[in-house]
Design a binder for these strands. Sequence first.
DNA 1: CGGCTTTGACCTGCGC
DNA 2: GCGCAGGTCAAAGCCG
Length: 245
Amino acid sequence: MYMAAAAAGASTPFNFCRHGSHAEYDAVFSGSWMARRPSAAPHGGGASGSGSGSGYGAASYVAPTFGAAFRQQHLDLLDYLSDDQGVPAPPPAAVPSASYVTPAPAMAPAEPVVPDAVAAAGGYPRSVAAAAAAVAGEGRDRTTTDKIAFRTRSDDEILDDGYKWRKYGKKSVKNSPNPRNYYRCSTEGCNVKKRVERDKNDPRYVVTMYEGIHNHVCPGTVYYAAQDAASGRFFVAGISHPDLN
DNA sequence: CGGCTTTGACCTGCGC
DNA sequence: GCGCAGGTCAAAGCCG
Ligand SMILES: [Zn+2]
């Protein structure tokens, strides 16, 4: 097991290669999906530490698309983690999506845990961090399928998160006029999936759900590696150490 | 010409 | 068992 931060980073499929530097997240709980806020710091606790997928740390790139996509708009982000316990069949009624529609500027909810807390969980920073810790600790090895979802306020739903996605399906969801799109990571061997749909209660928002963990870095990532004179081995800052093996 | 969308068919779990 | 709802497949078409 890892510490909370590490766990958060490592377990997070949500390894945006390009990610908004100062995006605001709105984390909420829903059903078996637990929410947390990745990390306020751009490359602080969350992403950079993740050994598995995120090559964020050493990555250097320009992120025009991302900027364009998000348009400086306030990014509302729900980040769910699935519990490997499966879905206890959360009644939709119990967790009306409307509940998380609330922007919830600066409420400081207690520790959000149960779906019921959703209403109260207007979610903001530190409390969410606590949640993350809680999740990390409580959710133990979620090595199974991770799920996270977040809601973004955007006009177009093609947010470039740095990965290449191949659409493989489209369905309409019951009780919603908006279709849901299914994407799969186009990288061979990586079976991360993603579903995108508009929030029916708030068409201004786009809900994106990720499932799985990328077993690769995002395409376009550039590493600046140094070569260890002694071993002749390459290593990348923040990614590996020469003495690794 | 290769990779991606499109789109209807197909599959599966679940409730009645 | 049937029908619905959600998820996936895959053939055909689109596009660079
Ligand atoms: Zn991937």
